[in-house]
Amino acid sequence: MGGKVAVLPVVGMIMAECAQAGRMIAGKAAMSNGLSSFVFVLYSHTIASIILLPSSLIFNRQQERPPLTLSIVSGFFLLGSLSGSCLGQSFGYAGINLSSPELGTAMLNTVPGLTFVLAVIFRMEKLDCRSYSTLAKSMGTIVSMGGAFVVTFYKGPLVLEALPSASDSSHQVLSQDSNWVLGGLLLAADCAMASSWLIVQASILKKYSAKSVVVFFYFFFSTILSLLVSLVMVRDPSAWSLKSKTRLISVLFSGILGHAFQVGVTTWCLQKTGPLFVSIFAPLGIVITATVSVIFFGDALNLGILIGAVIIASGFYAVIWGKSQEAIKKVDDEENSGPASSSQKVPLLQNRSSVDA
């Protein structure tokens, strides 16, 4: 049973990364079709809020919910601000629109390093300079950040050229190095917001354990903030339209799978394992997104993304190794520390022996 408990967060995070990669591709498709990035986030979060409202009421009965205090509600609002349209995702989708979904998922690989730094600052992770596990996590963080700089500032030659059908105006932005760098910087800001979001959410979950309620209020507040920002920033009525099938399908996919499912699963894994475990699955996104974009959309693939992804993945596995060594040490310490556990084992063995006799 313990093996199943350990495997479930891994499977959940793989599925969440698939959903997130799909959301980035859907966002790129919708924005290439003329939908505003601000409006895209607004529609997606609105759909996610509607989907999650029943589950937050059904699966958390009133007597099981912790009380909603002002500090908890303020935390929900902070979550919506960090990753809502006004901050995090506005940077993220603008960066994707200026560059590519592959660059977006590659930059997400910096989230483990940023999260580790913040987790140490807020004492969610221990920093022991004499420990090999701490050294591995620290070096992995530095390596991942270096890979992010490679991905952002070195595009490199084409490894796979775009198909003729993909070489339209929506892909011409990739030929502009200034847009590529600006897109990378915007995505870096999005990653910083994402790391902060994980830390804040982990802190809230310690005080308020009703996961579905936390996720609902996150989308609820981000929807309100997205609406305010969209009304100010988007004045063109055509940028709000969902008459195009591409826009409609992209918004539905993003709202249902890319947000409601992905954030719900991530929140469950976050409560079970902590922010660092959740963040270290980010490198899977570059593999998923690049594969889908090249195979199904005929997108080009640059050498800089591959080199940066390999560097980031190396740091990713160093962090994983360090984290696994800490988990093993914690289990060993728990097994060897308690005198009660050893005293309880003897009677059980004696009883078993008497039964066998």
Rank of each mutant, 00 (worst) to 15 (best):
W197D: 05
L185F: 08
F220A: 13
A202H: 14
K206A: 10
D190P: 01
L185H: 02
A189K: 05
A192G: 11
K206I: 02
T223Y: 12
I199N: 07
Y208H: 03
D190V: 07
A210C: 01
V214P: 03
F216H: 08
S222V: 14
F221Y: 13
L187A: 01
M193D: 04
I199Q: 10
S195W: 11
T223G: 10
S222Y: 14
F219T: 13
V213I: 06
K207M: 10
V215M: 06
S203R: 07
L187H: 01
F217H: 14
V215Q: 03
D190I: 02
A189N: 11
I224D: 03
W197E: 07
S212F: 06
M193F: 14
K207A: 13
F217Y: 15
L185D: 00
V214W: 08
D190N: 15
S203F: 09
S203Y: 08
G184V: 06
V214N: 11
L187N: 01
L187F: 02
K207S: 14
A188S: 12
Y208V: 00
I204S: 02
F217R: 04
K211E: 04
A189R: 04
S195L: 10
K211P: 00
V214Y: 08
I204N: 03
K211Q: 07
A194T: 06
S203C: 05
L187R: 00
L205Y: 09
V213L: 00
A189V: 10
G184Q: 03
C191V: 14
S196G: 15
F221T: 09
L186N: 01
A192I: 15
F221C: 12
A188H: 11
V215P: 01
L185P: 00
L205C: 11
Y218H: 13
A188W: 12
K211D: 03
S196H: 08
S195E: 06
F219S: 10
K207R: 14
S195K: 07
D190Y: 14
C191G: 05
Q201T: 13
S212W: 02
A192T: 15
F221S: 09
I199P: 04
F221H: 11
D190H: 15
A192D: 02
C191N: 10
V215A: 05
T223L: 11
S222C: 15
Q201E: 12
A188C: 11
S222Q: 14
D190L: 06
K206S: 11
A189H: 05
S203D: 05
I204W: 07
A192Q: 07
V200P: 09
I199G: 04
K211N: 05
A210K: 00
Y218R: 09
F220T: 03
A188V: 08
G184D: 02
A188Q: 07
S209G: 05
F217L: 06
W197T: 05
A210N: 00
V215S: 04
A188M: 12
C191W: 11
T223C: 12
K206H: 10
Y218A: 04
L205D: 05
Y208R: 01
K207L: 12
C191H: 08
F219M: 13
K206T: 07
Y218C: 07
W197S: 04
A202C: 14
M193Q: 09
Q201L: 09
W197I: 08
K207H: 13
A188R: 04
G184K: 03
K207D: 06
A192W: 12
